[in-house]
Write a protein that binds this DNA or RNA. Sequence first.
DNA 1: GCGCAACTGGAACGCTTGTTCCAGAACTTG
DNA 2: CAAGTTCTGGAACAAGCGTTCCAGTTGCGC
Lengths: 188, 188
Amino acid sequence: MRSETFDRADVLDRAGALFAEKGYEGTSVQDLVDRLGLSRSSLYNSFGDKHALYLQAIDRYRARGQKHTVSLLDGGPALASIEGYLRTVGAETVGCTTCLVTSAAMEQGLLNDGIEQRARESLTGMAELFAGLIRRAQGEGDVPVGKDPVRLGRALANTVCGLRVFASVRPSQEEVEDIVEAAIDSLR
Amino acid sequence: MRSETFDRADVLDRAGALFAEKGYEGTSVQDLVDRLGLSRSSLYNSFGDKHALYLQAIDRYRARGQKHTVSLLDGGPALASIEGYLRTVGAETVGCTTCLVTSAAMEQGLLNDGIEQRARESLTGMAELFAGLIRRAQGEGDVPVGKDPVRLGRALANTVCGLRVFASVRPSQEEVEDIVEAAIDSLR
DNA sequence: GCGCAACTGGAACGCTTGTTCCAGAACTTG
DNA sequence: CAAGTTCTGGAACAAGCGTTCCAGTTGCGC
């Protein structure tokens, strides 16, 4: 026996970064071989074909994002958590960090298998996460009880979604801050 | 002499629809020939190569969008114009109408020539349009003067941007309505 | 140290890609 | 009718694509 010499998660991370950068169709298998540090043969043996690798990279990306989100949100008042999360997304946007799920949704949304569903899951998941936090913040007296948590949660998720696109366009810090702060204002 | 038999604008519209649907890399020249109703040769003679056609389709799309926007916005109180525009975008979103500029920005944003700039122009243009309308609505007593028109305008543009992504994911009418109504609420 | 399994490198595959070219048909204008 | 231009269909091209396969190397577990 001999176990895999490469770090599977790490390979998927790098593949995901490449896919997010150049798109699925824009990334050739040769690009992947060059960037991932393993041979063509190993790539096919360990991950299947290009599309299978894409899906695995997306799943990995989503899992990592979820872990990161949770660590950002637990503890402290809910409103502060929301603000912190939005500001983090804002910083990523200024840094032109492109989002793999958004890229995948835009590129393949209407036709491809599995991807549309994954993207929708990510979006509704984020909306529900926000809604829960808003409800908690209302309990903590930080958000007016008149506000509809579901509606506001969906709006915040959409704001994040918009920022993912903005990231492709090298926005100024000022623009991004305005968007983030306006979102936060909507909670007051 | 013999003039062009096809309608140039119409061909660009159909090309744009195809590019928006399948992405730039995902659309082959053969796809274009099949859909546009003119021969490979005419296509190259009249529009140059694939990338040139793409840019022309984007420009045409933007011009058409601008014309449409203007017709939607002139006349009546500014607040009603904003609401009408947002609801129109919402309807397009429910109908899964994908936006060529957003697709182009996501696919090529960081690397390609001309496209990033065009996408940013579209976004900042929309933000400024909103800012102007908000200022007018403030003059008309429909929006509190305490609100910052520039910030709010940017937030609305970002909301539209997010909806363009949502359209790829077959959202429910309810979700989209929540997002649109929350955006409108932010003006009160 | 033997055998098994993961890995490498490269060659080969059939297919699609974007692009060019050409002979001829279709049409408009003189 | 003739000249000139646009359009068509199809062939041809080199390059790149995703995928498969194989001979050979490396390293772990018995």
